[in-house]
Simulated scan of single mutants.
Amino acid sequence: MSSVRYLLIAIIILLRLPGAEAAPVEDAYIAGYAASILQREFRLANPALDVKNGIIKVRTDDLTGTDRAKVMDALSSIPGVAGVETVDNEKQLASSPSTPSATWVYETTQPGGQVTLQTGFLPTGHLFKSLLADPRWPHFSAAYHYTSVSGDFDDTVNIATVSFGETIPFYRGNLSFGQRFAGQWETGLQAGVFSDFNLDAPSSDLINTDFFGAVYSSMRIGDFSAFGRLFHQSSHLGDEFLLRTQLQRVNLSFEGIDLKLSYELPYGIRLYGGGGGLFHKEPASLSPWSVQYGIEFRSPWRLDFAAMRPIVAVDLKNYEENDWQTDVSARAGVQFENLDVMGRHFQILLEYFNGHAPSGQFYINKIEYVGLGAHFYF
């Protein structure tokens, strides 16, 4: 139980960091900087701008007669800018902030608005959004699962699951396929550690830890994005768990490649799908192919009080190793947008899983669980 306690302490410390709150003064600085660039370099006399949380919004009409790609690139290079977005009319520019209330606020997102993120080395933001219901997407989390496991290898029912991970873009650049299909690409590293603890054991035994590392590349054109990676994963059983159960250990380790495509629809709906294969694996008999697909809903409505946004996500996976049976992972809850830690939002999610265990050592065992988790996602 001590490991879970240390994780909770770490999360509390993160929440208390100075960077955990937005800085409106910095937004005002960015707005002035952006207006100066537009007036000095592009001869735009009175551009309508809005900046919130480092995102610059500029009217499409104000960019008439300019090289839009150069404008977006110049604005995204401003220190502190997280993204640049064009909007079709002035009504979409945010009004002055009001006092939070217990009402639902609808935030419209018009199609055709091009978002440009910061370019260069170690940029902020990500082109491909996290997969919210994927149990093996690297991020920081802690969750409790009430679990039912097939087979007689263990009597575990109450499990604590923790993960530590991040997706780090090293470099981002612009793509140009004509003005209509301008986009961006980035490359970087992704890494994560996923551990399960048996809360029914006297010492809260470590059951399994999966280590994951990848080199990735992603791109975005409008609402379409893609994410490909070359990855490694290895799995390890906990010593106390092995001594107590005398389970026959599997030396599971593999390298592979996968690709995911995503498209964002109106009203906060996102569809994604893809697949992958293993080219080096142990045991050698492990079947290589898999597919993954899902749907997410990030509500365009948020509760003004506490800035809570509803979230629902379903992730589906099929592995050749398990005769293409479907593993279902579903999560639903709220995102607290006033708790921003290094660009990551805090989420409380109800969790459900039914399928073959995502924990590497038990990939042939079927499990079902319900639980509650705390997550930090970008």
Rank of each mutant, 00 (worst) to 15 (best):
S2R: 03
I9G: 09
I9T: 09
I11S: 03
I12T: 07
P18Q: 08
E26R: 08
D27A: 06
A31H: 08
G32H: 14
Y33I: 11
Q39F: 04
E41T: 05
N46Q: 13
P47D: 09
P47Q: 10
G54T: 06
T60I: 09
D61V: 09
A69T: 06
V71A: 13
G80E: 05
V84L: 12
E85A: 10
Q92P: 02
S95M: 13
P97I: 07
S101W: 00
P111W: 08
V115E: 01
Q118L: 01
P123E: 00
G125N: 11
K129Q: 14
L131I: 10
D134E: 15
P138Y: 07
P138N: 11
H139R: 15
F140G: 02
A143P: 12
V149T: 13
S150G: 07
T156D: 01
F164A: 11
I168M: 00
Y171E: 01
R172W: 04
N174M: 00
T187M: 06
G188H: 01
Q190H: 00
F194N: 11
L199I: 03
A201Q: 15
P202L: 01
S203I: 01
L206K: 08
I207N: 03
D210G: 00
S218D: 10
M219G: 01
M219Q: 02
R220G: 03
A226G: 08
F227D: 04
L230V: 10
Q233V: 08
D239K: 12
F241H: 02
L242T: 06
R244F: 15
Q246I: 00
Q248P: 02
L252A: 13
S253P: 07
G256F: 03
D258K: 06
L259V: 12
L265E: 04
G268S: 04
F279G: 05
H280S: 14
S285W: 06
S287P: 02
S287N: 12
Y293G: 05
G294C: 08
P300E: 07
W301N: 05
A307S: 06
D315W: 00
Q325K: 15
T326W: 02
R331S: 08
R331M: 11
L339E: 13
I364S: 15
K366A: 14
Y377K: 07
F378R: 14
F378Q: 09
